[in-house]
Amino acid sequence: MGKIFDFEFMISIIPDIIKGIPYTIEIAVFAFVIGIGLGFIGALAKIYNVPVLKQLTNIYVSFVRGTPLIVQIMLIYYAIPIFVRLINQRFGTDWDISWIPALVFMLVAYSLNAGAYLTESIRASLQAVSKIQIEAAYSVGMTTWQAMRRIVIPQAIKVGLPVFANFFIGLLKDTSLAFTAAVPEIMGQAKIQAGRASRFFEAYIDAALIYWVICIILERVVAYVEKRQHLTEKTGGVKA
């Protein structure tokens, strides 16, 4: 009978599990960037009451928030092949689904998920900027887009930064579900190593520690950025 807890094994597989970090980061960053884009469009549709687009956004947000992420991942995983086959059938193309790496499916799934959650956060951040400033921007001759870019968005980012940062940290941890689609990110690697030696607890402790370290680093970065942003408050509202 072997050891109850194999500490050496736990240390020895860390380099293998670390190989999953790039996938984890890639999914999180990609989904965050695309999610910001989708969320911005959704937020504008809601704020400006754009017909059709607003209703679509409402359904999209409601669906994503009302279904588990794992279910969404499975839906995307099976939806894309069907979609490709439909295109092949309709246009006589000959696209091979097996050419699409599993990672791509995950990038799509996580982006759509992030977009829905960020729609509400971005809407709230944009609307936190007082309306009078927007009117003032119009009154000096700015276009809607100029007012957005120069006045509203910079302030909205400042307001929303803690929310966006926390969302990113949450997203990064949620990428662990990508292993269900055989993406070898941190959790996927841990599972592979665990299966090889039938030592699951050791491998998952490694995974947990790696996620934890990444999140601590991210929290530090966010705290630093926030501190820099509050610099003007320290100087009594004078530009440093």
Binding site: S130, I132, Q133, E135, A136, A137, Y138, S139, V140, G141, T143, R150, I151, P154, Q155, K158, K239
Partner: peptide, 21 residues
């Protein structure tokens, strides 16, 4: 755009851009 380039407004609640000095 043309009308706003020919006018300027001072608001009751100031409307200063808070991200600008």
């Amino acid at each position: 755009a043309k009308a706003r380039r020919r006018t300027a407004m001072v608001f009751q609640n100031f409307g200063l851009f808070e991200n600008k000095t």
